[in-house]
């Protein structure tokens, strides 16, 4: 970390072809989470996303076990992804059931589902670690993320998935904006609010499962929360906010992947999250729409005028 020249050359895309593809793949993922995060945050689903992300762990572990049992490599991506998606959906349904069917409030439903599913994943991981088969160490990257050793094909799949997510949001952008702003109005005018909420949850699920490889399931929720929160300081317009959030998400993932390419031991997810948080703090002070500095300056101007 002391010698910055490798980092600079990587940032300027002068590294190997493979590294560049991986960094661009990470950036595409960051953009997708930034876009989805806007609506997850506006519809108060951010903490549900955290639970859903943690709930992918038992799925990843089960996917590994099934793959190995069927004679495939334990790290075979389709098995892990399908497993992750299945337990994540089960967790989302559990949260809904607890909130609607018992006296427990949503925060308690989220926390207990998160804890129980993640714990189950941990138990399964400890089982896997004692299995007499190879590839267990590979599962670690799904916790805190890693770009080291990522294949070019994986990065391309990542970018394609992210593109699909972005297109899906673009297709129903105005409906999503409407229910985020005024759900009752939307319901009164015949918009399928429940279905749109489900669409947001599905998009959250999609980016979480895609993002496991790069950011890891422990910290992926930060990419859904921090970029939109930062973007809010630069604009009052939902459309621009979504674009800025996508840019911040992409930049965080890009720089994070670059830094972890220089020092391979560092978990990529942790670096990405810290880059995003730094951008948030910068936006809080200097954001052009609601930043503290701008507001203070604007207020003085206004008072001077009156």
């Amino acid at each position: 970390m002391t010698d910055l020249s490798p980092l600079v050359s990587i940032l300027l895309l002068q590294a190997g072809y493979n590294t560049i593809v991986v960094m661009l793949g990470a950036a595409a993922l960051g953009a997708a989470t930034g876009i989805v995060g806007v609506f997850a945050m506006l519809r108060r689903r951010a903490l549900v996303a955290d639970a859903v992300a943690h709930a992918t762990l038992p799925g990843v572990a089960l996917g590994f076990i099934v793959a190995v049992t069927l004679g495939f490599s334990g790290r075979s991506l389709p098995f892990l992804m399908v497993g992750a998606a299945l337990t994540a959906i089960l967790a989302a349904l559990s949260i809904q059931w607890i909130t609607n069917r018992t006296r427990l409030t949503e925060d308690t439903a989220i926390a207990s589902v998160l804890a129980t599913f993640f714990a189950l994943g941990i138990v399964l991981l400890t089982v896997i670690q004692t299995l007499k088969t190879g590839g267990q160490a590979g599962l670690d990257i799904y916790l805190l993320g890693a770009t080291a050793g990522m294949l070019r094909e994986e990065a391309i799949i990542l970018a394609l998935f992210s593109l699909v997510v972005a297109l899906a949001v673009a297709a129903i952008f105005k409906e999503l904006t409407l229910i985020s702003f005024d759900a009752d109005y939307a319901r009164a005018h015949g918009f399928p609010v429940r279905l749109l909420d489900l669409a947001i949850l599905a998009l959250v699920l999609a980016v979480v499962v895609i993002g496991l490889r790069v950011v890891g399931l422990v910290l992926i929720v930060a990419l859904l929360i921090t970029p939109p929160a930062a973007a809010r300081f630069w604009t009052n317009h939902t459309g621009y906010m979504t674009l800025i959030s996508a840019t911040i998400g992409a930049a965080s993932a890009y720089f994070g992947a670059a830094i972890s390419a220089v020092s391979p031991d560092t978990p990529t997810g942790a670096v990405i999250v810290l880059v995003a948080f730094t951008i948030l703090l910068f936006s809080v002070f200097f954001g052009s729409a609601r930043g503290i500095v701008v507001r203070a300056f604007g207020a003085r101007q206004w008072r001077g005028a009156s």
Partner: peptide
């Protein structure tokens, strides 16, 4: 909840 989420993930990452 966004403030809480942003801070606790950043602290854990740190």
């Amino acid at each position: 909840s966004a403030a809480l989420g942003a801070v606790f993930t950043a602290m854990f990452a740190l």
